[in-house]
Write a protein that binds this DNA or RNA. Sequence first.
RNA 1: GGUGAGGUGGAUGAGAGGCUGAAAUCAGCAGUUUGCUAAACUGCCGUACUGGUUAAACGGUACCGCGGGUUCGAAUCCCGCCCUCACCGCCA
Length: 420
Amino acid sequence: MLEIAVIRNNAEDIKARLAVKNFKELNLIDEAVVVDEKRRSLQKLLDDNLNKQNTIAKEIGDLFKQGKKDEADKRKSDSATLKEEAKQYESGLAKIEDDLKSILVRVPNTPHKSVPLGKTPEENEVIKQVGEIPVLHEGALAHWDIAKKYDLFDLELGVKITGAGFPVYKGKGAKLQRALVSFFLDNAVEVGYLEVIPPHMVNETSAFATGQLPDKEGQMYAIPLDGFYMIPTAEVPVTNIVRDEIVELPVKFAAYSPCFRREAGSYGKDVRGLNRVHQFEKVEIVQVAHPDKSYEVLEEMAKHVEGLLQKLELPYRILRLCGGDMSFASALTYDFEVYSAAQKRWLEVSSVSNFETFQSNRLKVRFRDENKKIRLAHTLNGSALALPRIVASLLENHQAADGINIPKALQGYTGFEKIS
RNA sequence: GGUGAGGUGGAUGAGAGGCUGAAAUCAGCAGUUUGCUAAACUGCCGUACUGGUUAAACGGUACCGCGGGUUCGAAUCCCGCCCUCACCGCCA
């Protein structure tokens, strides 16, 4: 949610920037300003009224002490009139606050100046591409066939137990999952992240706070009996750690969790094998940063992700998302894609974003600045990394005629150098 | 799941209809003093909205788990809910 005070003072600038995101309802900005104006004048009326009531109540107290019952009773009727009036103001104010909020929740975050114009993923800006695209041997396989050949994971078995998109990992396939999670966590801890294991279900308040509710309800698995939701990413529980807190900066969390996503509406080659599944493992990094530092932090996080991909010896590229492809809450997002050699396509494995105060405004994540003033902090997060597509590209890119070669950096975690 | 106790500022904890936005202690901040460390003393020290201002100072309102109610007046009384702790039951 954008801050109303910011909108009030920069309405035109905000509209111009939202246009970069192809946001159509720019009129909402003007509406917000008008409704806020009304809100404040009503607030003033109510406060003045309550002030009078408080004064009268004190007077009545004094009059009683002096034994002047008659005069006290007279003042009581004044109070009754004010009270009626106050009720009107209160209900009016409640409605107007609702109106304002419902406007604000529909306005996306303003994009950073560096965000390129564009509507589709094709218009994302490729910042850099690193690593050789491997030339595979004759008869190289896609990862779903590799999985069958070496019995690494089984999607049909998952269908029997749960449904499509719930893989069962086996043997070295299972060990590889565990190895990657440990590898990612250790790398994060090494550069100062605090490892946390959050709950894998969240309540409604948490889901609202990070913006999964109300509009993305269909993407989460729900447990209605208890009012819980399975987390679609550790971002949800981890970011909620700092909800309503005045924190010491910087805050750096790294969390492993399984992620559960309904992925309604997905189809075709996108969902083949591990390309898109309903349950997967991910290590998420989350930072809460000083507003003056948050873009440095974003670069630092991007570097961290890049380092992981290099250690895994995967060819990757980094994209700066265009306005149209960015998420609602983000001000600037870098996507990381690895090349999957057998599928001959790029797969998104990480998304690193700065939300500026968009999340923290709703979450009320604040810090004390140099002048002891309490201000909203900036929040950032990124995947470091999500496993399935990393596994897909590891299997495909590192395959040889005699098996799959495990990158050096990972061998200490897997305990084996080759899957054969 | 059952029974009991309880939720007050960063922490401990008093308050039991008006003198309470809230004692006291600790922590924190600023200062005074003493060679250093430490101690002592003095002052400050919740959040949100809002008026005011270049910014402040200063002012108003709300908030004592959450939501209602009683009353001229509620942290304090009443009702509902949520949560925490202890014990019992069940259990990896």
